[in-house]
Write a protein that binds this DNA or RNA. Structure first.
Length: 536
RNA sequence: GUCCAUGUAGCUCAGUAGGAUAGAGCGCGGCCCUCCUAAGGCUGAGGUCGGUGGUUCGAUUCCGCCCAUGGACGCCA
């Protein structure tokens, strides 16, 4: 409908010799429906350019518009053009939704563009906690959204299984193991103290007794255990990956050395204080960065550039990295490194997610009551439930330093937005199953005429636009807000109109209507990893 | 000190490619179940959109400055 109005406006502009690119024509849906079904401010834009009266311009524009779908055109306020449109398209859309079913809302705006999205990428040195949960939720929602919108998406987890932190992990396990053997633990200064480290040590003690001295065994058994745990936690969080890439493998297959050689070759590196530096300042970083430390080991940047080059080499059109706010300052050096290595850093989009705090009784919850460690993703899911957890993360935009309100999220009975939405879906399912006869597809709708029904239908109609917008903006929370509004409009409709009545025609039409609503809710919830529940 | 983000109702947050009366939930006040799930609906109170200048017919939205909050400023990852 928007496109149609756009086209009509464009035609009229051409006739009036008012030049404006068609993309500059903005059709909006006014919040207040006394301003019509659709509105545009194009007359005011043109008036600005030509320094004339916007209402006169608007008159000229609408004098050339005439189409059967338009019931009425008004000029209002400073020069808005408001369109009143026949509602048939809303009724027709009911059958479209039912026919497309799980595909309703899909679009092709992604044009098959190959996108790689890397997220979570937690160090395998402990259990996933709150911050990872937000990253996992956002990354997962984003990839669902992008593939629903016609992008060719690869979901990737980068495993930091090399470097300093892994040495510390190894030594931490070894320390705990020594403790079990009755020796002094000697935990490293930057050691890991989670209870999972003790679990690993215990299982090694069980298997090897006091005889284990091979560092490699400590290392690999620790890594394997923790990585399995991470995979399991993510799976329980409804987050799955296509690809698990290993940092260590970049060393093993020579990518890191090759990359270092490449950087040294193109004259952006230099030696100073016994270290090898990269001139990242040439491309906007605030200072140059060390690549190879004076002790001969690499900084994190080295394998990370190699890793990104490897991703570039796989032929994606776009790379998306999802970082926590604490890694924000790292972005310029990474991009500079990529640029120096000869790739286009603009292909890489880094999405920054702000910190989360858990709040209970108005106070921040920092530690888990059970373990004394940071609150894990598992505990969160256990306490709050998977649907509520996913929903709560999906409500917020990335930029907000969100408070995760445990009191509200754990409310299972009342006032919890996730149940509000699920309840709408469940209500519909109940009604349809209460209708004992066969639900038939209708050729036309003749009895639907209430304001409540049209508000609801016009929200359903919006869904496609909403999906596109949130995909383009990489903002899945738009979907969450949308589905909440949709559920609200359904509840209102439900409270005012009985679906199952003695009138067979009306009943059948209303059942098809709410069926379309249910499909839309389900598809929207699916985009944020929340289940639509048939009975509550 | 520098860089990034944020500042909207008592609280948690939406909104803003500049537009017509700024929204929701929670909390607080009232009303509605002989009726498809009251996990619902209806309704009331509550706002100088951090402050201040500027651009504009029009700024919560864009720009400058200021204040506040969070994060980052390592030869850690």
């Amino acid at each position: 409908m928007k496109d149609k109005l756009k086209a009509l406006l464009n035609e009229s502009l051409i006739k009036n010799n008012m030049v404006k690119a068609i993309d500059d024509i903005i059709i909006e849906t006014p919040k207040d429906n006394t301003f019509g079904d659709y509105a545009t401010n194009i007359a005011m834009q043109i008036a600005k350019d030509s320094k004339s009266n916007p209402r006169d311009i608007a008159n000229l524009i609408i004098s050339n518009i005439n189409d059967p779908v338009i019931i009425k055109i008004e000029i209002a306020g400073p020069g808005f053009i408001n369109f009143y449109v026949k509602k048939d398209y809303l009724l027709d859309n009911i059958n479209t939704v039912i026919k497309e079913d799980i595909n309703y809302g899909k679009s092709a705006i992604g044009k098959g563009i190959k996108v790689n999205v890397e997220y979570v990428s937690a160090n395998p040195t402990g259990t996933l906690h709150l911050g990872h949960a937000r990253g996992a939720s956002y990354g997962d929602n984003l990839t669902r959204l992008l593939s629903y919108s016609g992008y060719d998406v690869t979901r990737e987890f980068y495993i930091n299984d090399a470097g300093n932190q892994i040495n510390n992990l190894t030594k931490s396990i070894e320390g705990r193991y020594r403790g079990l053997c009755g020796l002094e633990e000697n935990m490293p200064q930057e050691g890991y103290h989670g209870k999972e480290i003790i679990t690993i040590a215990e299982s090694l003690y069980k298997e090897y007794g006091k005889d284990l001295t091979d560092e490699e065994v400590f290392r690999t058994s620790g890594l394997n255990y923790l990585l399995d745990q991470i995979k399991l936690d993510l799976k329980n969080f409804r987050v799955e990956f296509d690809l698990w890439s290993s940092e260590q493998s970049l060393y093993d297959n020579g990518s890191v050395d090759k990359m270092l050689a490449l950087l040294k070759n193109n004259a952006y590196t230099y030696e100073q204080d016994g270290a090898l530096w990269l001139q990242t300042t040439v491309y906007g970083d605030e200072k140059d960065r060390v690549l190879v430390k004076s002790d001969g080991t690499n900084t994190y940047l080295v394998p990370d550039i190699a890793y990104h080059l490897e991703k570039y080499g796989r032929g994606y059109d776009m790379l998306i990295d999802i970082f926590g706010a604490d890694h924000h300052g790292y972005v310029p050096r990474l991009k500079a490194g990529i640029k120096i290595a000869g790739q286009d850093p603009d292909k890489l989009n880094v999405e920054i997610l702000q910190m989360v705090r858990l709040v209970r009784n108005g106070e921040e919850v920092k530690m888990s009551k059970r373990t004394g460690n940071a609150v894990t993703i598992n505990e969160l899911v256990e306490d709050v439930g998977i649907d509520a957890t996913r929903y709560f993360f999906a409500m917020r935009s990335l930029d907000t330093q969100m408070d995760f309100d445990l009191d509200l999220a754990t409310k299972k009975t009342n006032d919890n937005p996730v149940y509000y939405v699920q309840y709408a879906y469940a209500r519909i399912c109940t009604i349809i199953s209460d209708y004992l006869k066969e639900v038939k597809v209708l050729d036309s709708y003749t009895t639907i005429d209430s304001e409540y029904a049209y508000n609801l239908l016009s929200k359903v109609y919006e869904f496609k636009d909403v999906v596109e917008q949130s995909a383009l903006k990489k903002a899945p929370h738009i979907i969450t807000n949308y589905v909440y509004d949709l559920a609200g409009l359904f509840h209102t409709y439900y409270a005012h109109e009985k679906i199952l009545t003695d009138n067979e025609t009306s009943t059948m039409e209303r059942i098809n209507l709410i069926k379309a609503v249910a499909i839309t809710i389900k598809n929207a919830l699916n985009l944020i990893g929340v289940e639509a529940i048939e009975k509550m």
